[in-house]
Design a protein around this nucleic acid. Sequence first.
DNA 1: GGTATGATGGGC
DNA 2: CCCATCATACCC
Length: 227
Amino acid sequence: MANILPKSFYDRRTIDVATDLLGKFLCRKIGRNTYKGRIVEVEAYLGAKDLACHTSKGKTPRNEVMFGPPGHAYVYFIYGMYHCFNVVTEKEGNPCAILIRALEPIDEIRKFRNCDTRLISKFPGFPISDPSTTCGNNENKSSKNLHGKSIYNMLNGPAKLCRELMIDRKLNGWDLTSGKQLWIEKGETIRSGRIKKSKRIGVDYAGNWKDRLLRFYIKNNEYISKE
DNA sequence: GGTATGATGGGC
DNA sequence: CCCATCATACCC
């Protein structure tokens, strides 16, 4: 597939990769089907010197993927119940990554959420496929399925998008350029005027790094985790 | 919008 | 003990 982002995309300065990831498509293949979400919010983690980055305390079994080559997935388990998905950037040995914080669901994923019940029997517990949802072409911001979930509230957080797309530690280290199971495709390039910056979320422990503006999101997008 | 709290368990 | 989260409660 020609649209898969190549290794060279990730082998650059982390902040540049982070802003360039906005507007690209995260793709997850499960069974015969592929589900895609548009990346709308990310955070950059700048390696050993960055006190908010897991690698600031050195190499451990958990974070060793970040020390490897760019273009691989760094997936970690947090708070006893959640996973977060990152892409590794920069040259091998410079342990940086970008946390994917929110996705905008696009047509396939919406259709699946609403209509496709075949996968449910194959993957019991797959959260995005809720048999109680109705087939909805008239969704609005307050539309909810029978479990009270809105399409606006399913992919707007790093742990929520992992839950919905069944991303867990089995995909830690996955080569995102292989075009199987999990990859990222070209989309639009978001001009800097459409990108907002803020402090990263949940890193108040990170000393003089906690206030750095390393969170990037698409201005006015409806699927952001937090304003 | 903000703050506070419990859930829940791997990592160091 | 800590934690790159989430859902819920409440606005002290």
